[in-house]
Design a protein around this nucleic acid. Structure first.
Lengths: 244, 244
DNA sequence: CGAGCGTTTGAGACGTCTCAATGGTGGTGG
DNA sequence: CCACCACCATTGAGACGTCTCAAACGCTCG
C-alpha cells in the first residue's frame, strides 16, 4: 500500500464536487488521528452505540448493516476508501445500524468535537460534509429502487457500475480494472438475494463476457452494456463539479 | 383544516430532537412563503431538476419516487406534514428523484438563499436541518432492510408503525387513529410489492384484528403485536430529545 | 498434505407476480 | 334524486424468480 496522506482520497472525492481552498484542505488534514489497521470481519461501530468519533476509511472495504432478530441481514451500503462510514453520527448521535470490515481496512478516527468546531467556523466546508451524508441518502434511494424493482442481474450490474464510478473518483480504477476483495455471501447480503442466486447471476455476467472477476480482481470489459442493463446514471453520486 | 402557522408541525418535530430557541423558531417562521394547495398526483419537483427552493409539506401526503425506463416505480419515502420533501437539494443541487402528491397537499416554498443564510449564521439550526436529512437516510436504511429481507406482512406492519410514530410526533394521531388518504397501488409501490399482493396482505392484518382501515381512516388496535411483527424500533426516527 | 473457507452445482419448495375479471363507492350531470 | 361513470379494491388462478437445503469442488495457507 502506498503511503498517501490519510485524507487524500476524501479530498479527491470532495474536489469532484466543489473547489476546496488550501485552508479547507488543511482543516481536513487536521481532523484525523493516527491510522489503524482492522482485520476483515472487525466491527468499526456497533448498532445503538453513541460514538464520539466518526471513522474515515483509508483503504479496504467496509459495509453498513442492519439485521433482524432471526439473523436475516441486509447491508445497506458498501464503503470504499475516502468514505466516512458514520459521519451522520455527528448529528444523529445514536447509530441506527452497525459498520463492519468486509476486507482488512485501514481507518482513522475523526473526533466529533473537531467536526463540530468546523460546523461553527466553516460554513462552506460544513455544507460539503453535509453533502457527503446527503449523497449517502441518494445511494440508499438508488438501492431501494434496485432491491424493490430490479432483477438480480440488473442489481449486480448496478453494483459494478457504481463501484467503478466511486473507486474511479478516488483513483483506484486502472483501465476498467479494480480490486474488490469481498465475499459472494457479503455481496449477496447487500444485493438482497441469496448467495446461491448471486453466484448463478455472476456466472451469467461472466459468460456474456461483460466482466471478469477472479480472486479479488474485477475487470469491466463492456461497461456500456453493463450501464444499459443496470440503467445506471452516475448523477446521484454527485461527482460533477458544482458549487455548494 | 385548522389554520396553524405553516412551520408549526416542523417545529413540533424538531423540538422532539433538541430545544429550539425563540430566535431559531422565528428564523424558521421567516423561511416559508405563502402556502399553496396541490391536487393529488401533482408533481412537487421532478427528477433531474435543480430547484432554487425546498418544499415544506404542511398537510397531506407526498412521496419521493424513482423509476425505470419500462415504468417500474419505487417510492423511496412517504412524506407527511412537517416534512421537508427535498431539503437535500440545498446541498445536492440536482434532484436524484422526483416528489409527487399522494393526496391533496398544502405546501410552502422555502428559498435556498434563505436556507444558505442560516448555514452561514446559525450553526446549531444548521445541524438540526442537517439532522433532518440524516434521519431521511436512516429511514431509507430501515426500508432497505425491510424490502431486502422482510416479508410482505412484516413490511406492511412496519409501515403502519412508522406512520403512527411520525404522525404522532406532529400531533396527527388520536388514540391510535389517523388519516392515511393513499391508494393501495401507491402503498404497494412503496413496499416493493404488487398491488394485488398488498391487498391480500392487508386483509390478513384486518382479519387478525390488529388494525382496521376504512376509506382514509386507519385505526391501530393492537400496536404491540404490530411492533413485534415488524420488529419496529423507533430509534431511527430520532424522536427522543438529545442535543445536536 | 490436510484443514478451513469460500465457491459452485443440483433440485424441490414457496412467496410473490401477472393477467384478467368482478365488485364497490363516491362524485357528477341529467 | 337517481343513474351513470370513473376509479379503486377485491378475487381467482397459473407462471416464474428466487429461496433453501445439501453436497461437491477447489483454492490457499499452515
Amino acid at each position: 500500500m502506498l503511503h498517501l496522506p490519510p485524507t487524500r482520497r476524501l479530498e479527491l472525492k470532495l474536489a469532484r464536487r466543489d473547489c476546496l481552498t488550501a485552508q479547507e484542505s488543511a482543516a481536513l488534514a487536521g481532523l484525523v488521528e493516527e491510522p489503524v489497521l482492522k482485520p476483515a470481519g472487525a466491527q468499526l461501530v456497533g448498532p445503538g452505540e453513541r460514538p464520539e468519533i466518526s471513522t474515515l476509511l483509508l483503504s479496504g472495504f467496509a459495509a453498513r448493516y442492519s439485521e433482524l432478530a432471526d439473523g436475516r441481514r441486509q447491508y445497506t451500503q458498501v464503503n470504499c476508501p475516502g468514505d466516512f462510514v458514520d459521519l451522520h453520527s455527528l448529528v444523529m448521535r445514536q447509530m441506527d445500524h452497525g459498520v463492519l470490515c468486509l476486507s482488512p481496512c485501514v481507518v482513522s478516527a475523526v473526533p466529533h468535537d473537531r467536526l463540530r468546531r468546523i460546523t461553527e467556523d466553516q460554513p462552506h466546508l460544513t455544507r460539503l460534509l453535509w453533502l457527503e451524508t446527503v449523497v449517502d441518502a441518494a445511494m440508499h434511494r438508488e438501492w431501494l429502487l434496485a432491491v424493490g424493482q430490479q432483477t438480480a442481474l440488473e442489481r449486480l450490474a448496478l453494483f459494478l457500475c457504481e463501484m467503478q464510478a466511486r473507486l474511479g473518483a478516488v483513483g483506484l480504477v486502472d483501465d476498467g480494472v479494480f480490486d474488490l476483495p469481498i465475499r459472494q455471501q457479503d455481496l449477496a447480503d447487500f444485493l438482497g438475494m441469496s448467495a446461491v442466486h448471486l453466484n448463478r447471476t455472476l456466472q451469467i455476467l461472466r459468460d456474456t463476457g461483460w466482466i471478469s472477476w477472479k480472486g479479488a480482481q474485477v475487470r469491466v470489459i463492456d461497461r456500456q452494456r453493463l450501464i444499459e442493463a443496470a440503467e445506471f446514471d452516475d448523477a446521484y453520486l454527485r461527482l460533477d463539479c458544482s458549487p455548494v
